[in-house]
């Protein structure tokens, strides 16, 4: 083993790498926003009175959770254009991350909704609120609070999954690192460095979620 460490290419590429971290955050935040929308919307449809909607959501969750993310993103990027839907790498990545995260979010949020006592729903109905209002105003927040730790881990995972989007050359940390590595052959230095970057990114995401939790879910409970 006489591999001599040489960080020069990493140092020269540092501005690119740091900028690429923003790309990673962008994909992650976009994906999470979409995942939340899909998650909450999916829960509503999943328990709707219209049976085909319930089946649709169940099928969607099964399909997404039992297939690889790489295949999902390839499908959107390479197969959908054949059906006339052509998206750039970044929108594709956000869409794929949102769909994938959304399927998991549906199951997680649904668990939270089911943990809310029937008494809460009945109190809302007895006050003349209709079902949609009861869900939005009474059930949703305590439900999200109940599952927020699980949702946080799922979203940290989603953040790390952005690296798979390098496979379609979306602009993010891993693809920029790959480019620097292929030009310099400094694999150890480049991937060692971005490993640390990912650690920091995960940590920032966890801080972000704990701040949200402090802000919105810190009401006292017994």
């Amino acid at each position: 083993m006489n591999y001599r460490l040489d960080f020069t290419p990493v140092i020269e590429g540092l501005p690119d790498l740091l900028l690429a971290c923003l790309g990673t955050f962008g994909l992650a935040l976009g994906g999470m926003a979409l995942a939340i929308v899909i998650g909450v919307g999916g829960v509503i449809l999943r328990d709707s009175r219209i049976a085909p909607l319930r089946w649709l959501v169940k099928g969607f969750v099964e399909l997404v959770r039992n297939t690889p993310f790489l295949v999902q993103i390839f499908f959107i990027y390479f197969a959908l254009p054949l059906a006339g839907v052509r998206l750039d790498p970044t929108p594709t990545a956000i869409l794929a991350l949102g769909i994938n995260g959304g399927a998991y979010a549906i199951e997680i949020i649904r668990g939270g909704v089911q943990s809310i006592g029937k008494g809460q729903i009945e109190a809302g109905l007895a006050l003349g609120l209709h079902r949609g209002q009861v869900f939005r105003l009474i059930v949703l927040k305590p439900a999200l609070r109940a599952i927020f730790p699980s949702l946080t881990s799922q979203f940290v995972l989603l953040t790390l999954t952005t690296s798979v989007c390098s496979a379609i050359s979306a602009y993010e940390l891993t693809s920029v690192a790959q480019r620097i590595e292929s030009e310099s052959f400094r694999s150890f230095e480049v991937f060692g460095t971005i490993t640390l970057f990912y650690l920091v990114i995960s940590w920032v995401m966890m801080r972000f979620f704990s701040a949200i939790s402090q802000r919105y879910f810190s009401y006292p409970v017994k």
Binding site: A123, L125, A126, I138, K141
Partner: peptide
């Protein structure tokens, strides 16, 4: 329901408000 108030055994206040 808007004309009929109900009070429950377990209060059922909304904890997040």
């Amino acid at each position: 329901r808007r004309e009929v108030g109900m009070v429950f055994q377990h209060f059922n206040l909304f904890p997040h408000m």
